[in-house]
């Protein structure tokens, strides 16, 4: 399989992948004199799990920040759903149906799990402040409708028992799960996961992997993830982008990438003699 395809394909395990959902064209991002990303292009197709890997400082998180609107690249274009995306603020990106999680958890510590996940529904709630001040009627109805959606996600991620617990009191692994729940509550078309398994033990990693696969399978959500655990990446993802020093050095299925000489060099090092 090559990375030039514009149409969908069938994965090894028989899932059907659709056309291009998002395409990054020649993205270059500089911080002053430092080039974080140099001329990178790749695409994300509808329904696939796309991994971005690379050694520390390769520019993976910067790439995710470009997609979610935190960084504005100096050169290059972002295409989303077949149209060039104008420069927009992160909350506008969210309104387009792109949700993400963070490398170091970014939950609302003072709020309960339920409230955290409910914030994910913001863009689905349309009542204005006056209707909410009265509460009875539209606001309450809307709250209940969205609560039903949220409860499904809470069931799905098996966090029913902690729904009223303040997030600040939860252990690390559960916080990661709540963050995923919040991102899912957006009902995103594209879900960005920044190191969803960082700092987890084997069981937690297995749980999380299962959730990621289930999300992709049940909701058909397109997922782009950054991960360091190679075993996980190779098992989960349909296609992999490999970055090193801000450049793309490989792109393809896990097998293709694994046998790519540049990738092996970047991870294992080369002798300079």
């Amino acid at each position: 399989m090559s990375d030039q395809m514009t149409e969908g394909y069938i994965t090894e395990d028989g899932r059907k992948i659709g056309g291009t959902l998002m395409e990054m064209k020649n993205i270059t991002l500089r911080f002053g004199g430092v080039k974080a990303i140099t001329d990178i292009s790749f695409d994300i197709k509808e329904g696939e799990i796309r991994a971005i890997i690379g050694p520390n400082g390769a520019g993976k998180s910067s790439m995710l920040n470009v997609i979610s609107g935190f960084y504005v690249p100096q050169e290059g274009e972002v295409w989303y759903k077949g149209a060039k995306r104008p420069q927009m603020k992160p909350y506008q990106v969210a309104q387009q149906g792109i949700a993400r999680t963070f490398q170091n958890i970014a939950l609302f510590e003072g709020m309960s799990v339920l409230d955290n996940v409910m914030t994910g529904r913001l863009n689905h709630m349309k009542t204005n402040m006056f209707q909410q001040a009265i509460w009875k009627g539209k606001a309450e109805k809307e709250e209940v409708e969205n609560r039903e959606v949220v409860e499904k996600i809470i069931d799905f991620l098996e966090i029913q028992s902690i729904r009223k617990t303040p997030v600040g009191r939860l252990p690390y692994g559960l916080k990661k799960r709540v963050e995923l729940a919040r991102a899912l509550a957006v009902e995103p078309h594209l879900l960005l996961l920044d190191e969803p398994m960082a700092g987890m033990n084997v069981e937690e990693k297995e749980d999380m992997s299962r959730f990621i696969l289930d999300v992709n399978d049940e909701f058909g959500t397109t997922i782009a993830l950054i991960e360091h655990d190679m075993g996980v990446v190779m098992d989960l993802s349909d296609r992999v982008v490999v970055m090193d020093y801000g450049k793309k050095i490989g792109d393809g299925t896990p097998d293709e990438v694994r046998n790519n000489q540049d990738v092996i060099d970047a991870y294992l090092g080369v002798s300079h003699d």
Partner: peptide, 29 residues
């Protein structure tokens, strides 16, 4: 009470607890 238990309140608290995450979830700061 009605404002703080609904969407408006959650937007406010999201901004209070972590404004970056609030923005990424779709809150206009």
């Amino acid at each position: 009470r009605n404002l703080t238990r609904g969407t408006t309140g959650r937007k406010w608290m999201a901004i209070r607890d972590m404004d970056i995450a609030a923005e990424i979830i779709g809150v206009d700061p």
